[in-house]
Design a protein around this nucleic acid. Sequence first.
DNA 1: TTATATATTTCGAGT
DNA 2: ACTCGAAGTATATAA
Lengths: 250, 250
Amino acid sequence: MKCQVFENPSPKKAYRVIEEGIRKRVLIVILACCSASYEGRARSRLEPGERLIVIKPDGTFMIHQDRKVDPVNWQPPRSRCRSYMKGGKLYLESIRRSPEERLEVEIHEAHLVSCYTARDRHELEVAGHERDMGDMIMEHPHLIEKGFRPVAREYSTDAGFIDILGKDENGSLVIIELKSRKAGVSAVKQLKRYLDEFRDDRRGVRGMLVAPSITHDAMEMLEDEGLEFRSLEPLRELRSARGVTLDNFS
Amino acid sequence: MKCQVFENPSPKKAYRVIEEGIRKRVLIVILACCSASYEGRARSRLEPGERLIVIKPDGTFMIHQDRKVDPVNWQPPRSRCRSYMKGGKLYLESIRRSPEERLEVEIHEAHLVSCYTARDRHELEVAGHERDMGDMIMEHPHLIEKGFRPVAREYSTDAGFIDILGKDENGSLVIIELKSRKAGVSAVKQLKRYLDEFRDDRRGVRGMLVAPSITHDAMEMLEDEGLEFRSLEPLRELRSARGVTLDNFS
DNA sequence: TTATATATTTCGAGT
DNA sequence: ACTCGAAGTATATAA
C-alpha cells in the first residue's frame, strides 16, 4: 500500500507503526505534541508543543514548528533513528556519528502517524547560480568586454581560488570575482585579497567584480580601490531547455 | 478538531480542503505525486515524483523529497499560497514579494491531505554558539589568561568587527577572534586582517584565535604569523539550567 | 575522511 | 527595506 494512516493512535500503536516504518525505510510523517533535547555540536531544549515530525528513509530526522523554513531540531542523512517506550510514553531517538550527536524526542500525544512509500528518482534541476555564470563567461568572453580572453578558471592562490583569470585586449591580467546575487562589501574584500597576491607586479593588473548588482557600500569601496564592476545576470536557462534552444539553432 | 485527514481525495476534494486550511491558517501536510517549477533568484524544474508538501500558517511552503534535510523546493515565511484547479488538475502556487519569486506545483495524485491546528508557543533554547563564548570570556577573563582584561566587544574596524579587544597583564593590546567550532584558515586570515588594521603601531599587539579546536593548516598559518591559539569550549549550558546552577551556589 | 566554497542558503540584529 | 554576519548551517566537490 502507498500510504498508511493512523489517527490518534495509542502510544503503543504509534510505536509499532513507527518501528515498522523505520525498518521498511518509508517516509514517516507524525503530527504530535512533543518535546525535544539535542546534544552535539551545540545543545538545545524544546519544551512541549504541537509539531510535525518527519523521518526519512535516508535517516534524516526533522521536527518542524508551525513557522519558518528550517526545522527547529533535526539530524542529517545517515543518522540512526529508533523508537522506544518508557513509563507508558513513546520516545524517538536519532543518533549521528562523527560528530557524535543525539536528538531525543518525547511524544506526549500523537494525533497522526502516517507511512508513505515515496517513489521519487528525479533530482532537482537548477539554473542561475555562480557556476552557470562562469560557464557563460568561458563560452562568451565578450560578455566581460571586447577582446577579453579567459586564461584560467578556479585559479589557486594563497588567498583562495580566483573564479576566472583572464587578459584584456592590451594583454593586462584581469582578476574576476563572480557573485550570482547582489554583491556586498565582503565580495569586494575578497577581490582585493586576490589582487594583493599579485601586488609584487601589480602594474596593469585589473580586478573586476561581476554580479547582477552591487550594494552602495560595496561600490564605494570598489571605486576607492580602483577596481571595476560589471553587471551580469546569471544564465537562468535550464539544461533541458538549452537542448531545445540548440536544436532550434542547428 | 485538532486534526483532519483525507486519504486519496479527489482533486476537487483536495482543493477544497487545502483552500480551507490556508484560510484558517493551519498546518497543511500533503503526501502526493507532484512536479514543480520555481522562478526567482534562480530557476528550477522538478519532474514528477512522490513527495511531502508542507504549507505552514506563516506562509512557509516546502516540498520534501525522501532524502536530505533541506526541502527540494520552498518559499519562505510570508509567502502567499493559493490552490486552483485547471483542466481537472490541482495546482498549488506560492508567491513571494521582494524579491519576486514564484513556485508552482502540479499535483498529479494526492495520497494524503491533512490539516493540523498546531498550538506551539515555545521557542527553541540553544547554547553553545559564538555569542555564549563571548559572554563567558567577558564574565571570566582569566579563561584567556591570568591578568587579561577585556576592553571592548564587537569593536568596529575597517576590516570588520573584532569579537573581543583586551589588554594582557603587560598592558599589550590583545585582539581576540572567536569561533564556536573548529577554526580553519579563514579564521586565521580574518584575525590577520584585524591585526593589519593595527599595523601602524603593531609593537606589542597580540592576535589570538579562541576556538574549541583548530585545523592543522590553520595552526601552521597562525604560527607563521606569530599569532596565538587558545583552546576553549563554548559554554553549553542552557539558560534554564544556568538558573538552577546559580540557585545551587547561592 | 577532512577541508573549502556555494546556496533560491535561512535567520536575526542593526541601521 | 537593506545590509551584515552567524549557523548544530546543509551540501557538493576536491584533496
